[in-house]
Design a protein around this nucleic acid. Structure first.
Lengths: 137, 137
DNA sequence: ATAGATGCAAAGAGTTTGCATAGGT
DNA sequence: ACCTATGCAAACTCTTTGCATCTAT
């Protein structure tokens, strides 16, 4: 992408103003407020280009399509609420990740996704036991 | 799933004998050795049923279709080598995950995916700097 | 003016579902 | 014999691509 198009600006603005990672459809809906005829292919093409320019980051979720956020200033992880399905940023990081690795392995990055219920949703529904029962710190 | 069909046995055997998480197509190919006419819909249906029975686990990878493994006896995480694309089990877990959460949030599960190079691949290629540069422990 | 970016529609991947039939109990 | 699970094909969702047109430079 070499040109500053209105579509690209609208997509970036949507991500900047959202305050949380958005799905492709959320980006499309939001950016359409600025550029009416915006097509979904353009959203995909811009996200791909912005990703390779390291301007946006793709957040993968188990069993869902990815969400997108601006490349954050600080390293952070995410918390997915199983009740409201919102994704929250967690501005903390375990201190001892390298020690998890076998000898000789080189760690370059890490992703952590926490699952549970956010404060607003606690108690909203009967809590189904998590599938992953061990090691719940 | 209430019946012990040959298809289901073949799918479980494929996962049990593989020693690493498999993609749906890998499972199909492997289980076809036992049940020739096996269809991919049956693989999906059985994986879905086995998942809800907590007999298998789905391993999500960024930008790739998920892989599947038997539910492990121990809680573990994964390491994805960017050179050989193999996924390794990491039999360790940070001790202090709950403290990452904001007040009022309830943690039910967590996923950790480490990225880098495995011991066999270190030095095989020029190392491209990881995109996620901060907080590399 | 020119070449890159867009919008639309079609094409591809991956996954799910409807339905008649096979097969486990 | 009954009824669940299967195989096939069609449908669905998400994403990518071809192509004529538009637009930022």
């Amino acid at each position: 992408m070499e040109r500053t198009t209105q579509q690209r600006i609208a997509i970036l603005n949507s991500l900047q103003n959202s305050g949380r990672p958005l799905s492709v459809n959320e980006i499309l809906a939001s950016a359409k407020n600025s550029v009416g005829g915006l097509g979904i292919a353009t959203v995909y093409r811009n996200l791909k280009a912005l990703l390779s320019e390291s301007k946006v980051k793709r957040v993968e979720l188990p069993g869902q399509s990815p969400r997108w956020e601006m490349v954050p200033e600080d390293h952070h992880h995410h918390f997915l609420c199983r009740t409201c399905d919102k994704l929250f940023e967690i501005h903390a990081c375990p201190e001892d990740i390298t020690r998890l690795l076998p000898d000789g392995y080189i760690l370059e990055a890490h992703d952590i996704l926490l699952h549970g219920q956010c404060d607003a949703c606690v108690g909203k529904k009967l809590q189904i036991p998590a599938k992953n029962k061990s090691c719940k710190k």
